[in-house]
């Protein structure tokens, strides 16, 4: 739509789709619930209170609308994955640090995502339940090295203690913005416009309609 080439940096808004993958009991849902919980406005909860969540952020003047899609973790639904992760900008792959097997599942997802979506999707590998450090079965070093080897970032979180979650999402958003901008630039210079057109990124140049009050507009 809008030619992104000359657009100013400020006043931009991005819409990202992030898909949440991981085995059943690794706590992926509580992770996101913790992140999206709005303590000031309880009524804001959407119909699908735990399986589809949205969050608005403001990162350096860029507005970001995050839509987080939960998926069923049961093995027999694995084949349905592509339906959910197509057109995603990011994926959060959660494992339980006390469960070696769940880490293996994450590896399978990574392989599949890279094969189907290439490098355009930002991957986050998340070791959850660090409150149970004593029972750890997946070594920190192994997990981090693996993440690096597949071009993903690794995070440690505890949904229970609300640790590491903000950083995870903030970091992911920054990376998705970067990817979107690189993508946009490439499309601006590149010859074929329609080639990569059907990606999920929606970049909207929204001229602020109400500019009555001068001064800086902080996040709402």
């Amino acid at each position: 739509m809008a030619a992104g080439a000359g657009a100013a940096a400020g006043g931009r808004s991005f819409s990202f789709k992030v898909v949440l993958l991981g085995e059943g009991c690794v706590g992926k849902t509580s992770l996101v619930l913790r992140y999206c919980e709005n303590k000031f406005n309880d009524k804001h909860i959407t119909t699908l209170q735990a399986s589809f969540l949205t969050k608005k952020l403001n990162i350096g003047g860029k507005r970001v609308n995050l839509a987080i899609w939960d998926t069923a973790g049961q093995e027999r639904f694995h084949a349905l994955g592509p339906i959910y992760y197509r057109d995603s900008n990011g994926a959060i792959l959660v494992y339980d640090i006390t469960d070696e097997d769940s880490f293996q599942k994450v590896k399978n997802w990574v392989k599949e995502l890279r094969k189907m979506l290439g490098n355009e999707i930002c991957l986050c590998i998340v070791g959850n339940k660090i409150d149970l450090e004593k029972e750890r079965h997946v070594s920190v070093q192994e997990a981090e090295m693996y993440a690096e080897s597949v071009g993903a970032k690794h995070y440690h979180t505890s949904a229970k203690q609300n640790k590491g979650i903000e950083e995870l999402f903030l970091d992911l958003c920054k990376r998705m913005i970067e990817t979107a901008q690189v993508d946009e630039r490439a499309r601006g210079n590149g010859s074929s416009q329609s080639g990569t057109a059907r990606r999920g990124v929606q970049i909207i140049d929204d001229e602020p309609q109400v500019q009555s009050s001068g001064g800086c507009c902080s996040s709402g």
């Binding site: 990202f16 789709k17 699908l48 589809f52 899609w69 639904f77 339906i83 959910y84 999920g200 929606q202």
Partner: peptide, 15 residues
């Protein structure tokens, strides 16, 4: 609607 809640519901139905 792309990427939004209704898209999500439709995707769930499709799955």
């Amino acid at each position: 609607n792309q990427g939004g809640m209704l898209d999500f519901l439709l995707t769930a139905l499709e799955s």
